[in-house]
Write a protein that binds this DNA or RNA. Structure first.
Lengths: 198, 198, 198, 198
DNA sequence: TATGAATGAGCCTTCATTCAT
DNA sequence: GATGAATGAAGGCTCATTCAT
């Protein structure tokens, strides 16, 4: 009977919040700025979220959720370990293009003092890393001494960091191509065979 | 005459600012809190810095400067590439203990959106990475295809990230020891030999 | 046709508003809270009242109206002055039990700075007080020097204040009984004979 | 070395707060309005009080403290019970002229939903009332059945209510004089002899 | 008729910065 | 030089009110 919630508005709020957090940091993403960018009334986002903190937490959760889903999808495919790494990096490359905002957003918040990936999502991530670790060891593609955190760093942090360095032009390089992809896969898989070659 | 006193106060201000930024985030480190911790009047730091932003920028610059110096020092020693990596990581491990504040401070600010490593320091870092790259290639310890940014990521970002994961207890691991050191050196040097082993 | 439904809803709104004003204060009684408690849409009450202020004013008017009615009823009975006082206090005691809400509501709003008993109701109250005054003087139950406001204070403000002190547990007393009633009547009627006994 | 706190500013803040609470109610006394009236920067009062609530609580406490002091002073004088009542009312009459704001302020807040006289001050008030009660009974000026709360209502609430009615022109009467004083003393003392005369 | 989505003014509060002393 | 009193812009958030449906 009343007019229905305009989902587009909520979507614009989320989008605006993400963009502003990415471009100005959490502090720079003021409620007023978000509302203005979303072309929405100042206090409107409080219809959906009880606080700015929780809005951003929810967005982080969504972005991480997206990543976890893709990760789990890849992990369930019946492919070799090397292919897994390749597909994973390829997926991240694509995300960095098609969901650039999500990648940047995660990058910014994973390192922000006020935020943390929630403990249940951390558990999920850890579980995937553990499965990958097992698979890698079974295929002899991975040194016995490695731990989940090594997987996490090399398969997630490493590519995301590199992509962000490129996006920020940290070393006068920007963009990426198939060569980068191959090189990174090589570097990564080589790292996992560490002790074998010492 | 009054100089020594001033310097001590300035030093206290810097220390207080670092500690508060590390422990409370940039937003949580209010001028009033910094001044109180430094036992100095609220407005006093404006004798040295025109704004809070510039104070913190200066501190970041100092911390990065310290890191660059150590990096250059290591690079000038007449040692093998593997030893270089070992010494570098060892140095970072020690910094993480003895200058935990600097490590954390850099970590917090390198990813904060309001701050950036200055372009001249970025150039310096790049230069050191380039030298290390050259050395590594000369010694056949490094694949031809590698680039300065790979050096940077594997030699700087990787260990700092891991140390921070441990400090933040991301995967229920905290602290680090010599085993970690060896493992990391192995992983890192192996990664640099990537294509060789494919 | 739809009228009965409307009336029920309006009644629920009024009741909810009263309860919330009494329990949370004017500020705490938000339109949203009132609407929710009344199980009615947020904007619905604007069909009946142009503003929250006017809604509450109307409720105050009703409560005062109820009181005035009872007052006038008592005054028209053919009883002695002392009986009048007794019946009046008894009536207030009962109201405080059966229409606790109205008593509290009046108490809260009569002293709230945003509200005032309307001047016509003030006139009515004054008229009743004047009649009681006349009756009292005729029966020699009341000193010549007394004025309508003395009637008002002793017959209305005094018992309501006492009831509220009891309800608020101001002096570790709560509740009231027939003893209190008799005592109050005594105190009140005695006060009206003031100069006689000096 | 720094400029000293301008006590006049703090005083202006208190005064402005009191005036606005009295004239607009707690809700109407916005921080911005208080600051403007006090000719002081918006957030300045937070140097002295941690919140608006606590500012007003402090002011209430001061006003009540003033009243309690005067009450205790009167109670310690070696005078008859009737003189005590007379002096007390006279004192309130004077307060209502010279500290009109304090009287009004107390009146408004004692009935405001968000405030209460603190429990220690309530204890003090009760103690004074108890002493007066004892004195009155010793002098046979007071019925045995009376309680502290009767003292409080007749000696404090009654005159303050009347003064406020006059100040608000509730019944087209304003101001007060010696006649009122005498009349009120009579009424009050008579009320305390209630059962004697039944 | 009745709903509740949407608005935006205004609230309390914080804090970097200025400047009189 | 050094202090800290004082400022005021901006922040997050609430809520009475409007109006499309």
């Amino acid at each position: 009977m009343a007019r229905p919630i305009d989902q587009a508005k909520l979507e614009r709020i989320k989008q605006a919040a993400k963009e502003l957090v990415v471009n100005m940091g959490y502090g720079g993403a003021s409620i007023a700025a978000i509302a203005k960018k979303a072309e929405v009334a100042d206090g409107y986002l409080y219809r959906f979220y009880p606080s700015k903190q929780l809005l951003v937490e929810d967005l982080l959760r969504s972005s991480v959720h997206l990543l976890i889903n893709k990760l789990e999808g890849l992990n369930n495919e019946n492919i070799s370990f090397r292919e897994l790494v390749y597909n994973l990096f390829e997926m991240l490359f694509e995300m960095a293009k098609e969901q650039e905002l999500d990648i940047k957003f995660m990058y910014v918040l994973m390192n922000d003092y006020n935020f943390q990936v929630s403990s249940d999502q951390r558990t999920q991530i850890r579980a995937v890393c553990a499965q990958i670790l097992t698979k890698g060891k079974q295929e002899n593609a991975m040194d016995k001494s490695l731990h989940e955190e090594d997987i996490f760093i090399m398969l997630i942090v490493y590519p995301i960091t590199l992509l962000n360095m490129r996006m920020k032009n940290f070393f006068d390089k920007s963009g990426w191509n198939t060569n980068d992809l191959t090189k990174m896969v090589n570097l990564c898989t080589a790292s996992f065979l560490s002790t074998k070659n010492q």
